[in-house]
């Protein structure tokens, strides 16, 4: 929800980044305030995941220009875990399978890392299990998942729900969801959307990266941005998504091209 005086949570200015010398982000500008839900759309390879990984601090990407101000602080020099502890959360497009690490143990270690940061005592195994079981409700996951290795053998939908579960536990200031909606059947989509809606609060913000307009029927964005060639070329309200659905990306690309040539 857009509100006049709410705090700026994330401010990305002229962000350029490369991987092994190849530029991928070419000057991204984005401002996200508390209470808002943003959608970022764009064709395959337009740089959406790269933007999310650069925000979260993936070591493979080198920021060559610009800045990322998160909660009032430039986080470019911060490690991924420092960013996480500061309230950033990235739901991965492809959550990793980690054999041998039980989902429950992983969730507990992550949760307790955050408590330590906040100067709180670590939560013991019993209390933690109660907490997780409560959060499981939100994503309609069976408690038996907790005993299994992290994401190992999970279906696509189960992996995505597991990401939302982690977000529910960590209660981030900024949740970036990289295609958490793609590849889901309608029931799973509704579960994920419902989770996102429940977690959205006036003091946090959500950035949803998506290919499809479909999820926006369930989660109403305040802003829709379109990415192309590593930058945001158009922004608008939720009606932009509708337009994209009807007209495809071509008209934006044409406009963007004429814009660039006009410069």
């Amino acid at each position: 929800m857009i509100r006049e005086n709410s705090n700026v949570i994330l401010s990305v200015r002229n962000l350029t980044a490369e991987v092994e010398g190849t530029p991928i982000l070419n000057g991204v500008n984005l401002e996200v305030k508390a209470g808002e839900i943003h959608a970022i759309m764009g064709r395959n390879g337009s740089g959406k995941s790269t933007l999310s990984k650069v925000l979260a601090g993936h070591p493979d990407y080198k920021v060559t220009e610009g800045e990322i101000i998160f909660q009032g602080e430039n986080i470019l020099e911060m490690e991924p875990d420092e960013r996480s502890l500061k309230g950033m959360f990235l739901a991965f497009q492809y959550p990793l399978e980690i054999p041998g690490v039980s989902t429950l143990d992983f969730l507990r270690v992550a949760y307790n890392s955050q408590r330590k940061q906040q100067g709180l005592e670590e939560m013991d195994a019993f209390d933690f299990e109660d907490l997780v079981e409560e959060k499981l409700e939100l994503v309609k996951m069976d408690p038996s998942f907790l005993e299994r290795s992290l994401n190992e053998g999970f279906s696509g939908g189960e992996k995505k729900r597991n990401e939302i579960l982690q977000m529910a536990l960590l209660e981030p200031a900024l949740g970036i969801l990289d295609e958490t909606d793609s590849g889901l059947d309608i029931d799973a989509l509704k579960i994920v959307a419902n989770g996102v809606n429940q977690l959205a609060k006036p003091d946090n913000a959500t950035v949803m990266i998506t290919h499809y307009q479909r999820i926006l029927n369930y989660v109403e964005p305040d802003y829709v941005h379109v990415m192309r060639d590593g930058r945001i070329v158009t922004s608008g309200g939720k009606e932009l998504a509708q337009e994209l659905e009807e007209r495809g990306y071509e008209w934006i690309e044409e406009e963007a091209v004429s814009e660039v040539s006009a410069q």
Partner: peptide, 8 residues
């Protein structure tokens, strides 16, 4: 990276 993005 996945684990560190969760605060570890």
């Amino acid at each position: 990276f996945y684990l560190r993005s969760r605060g570890l």
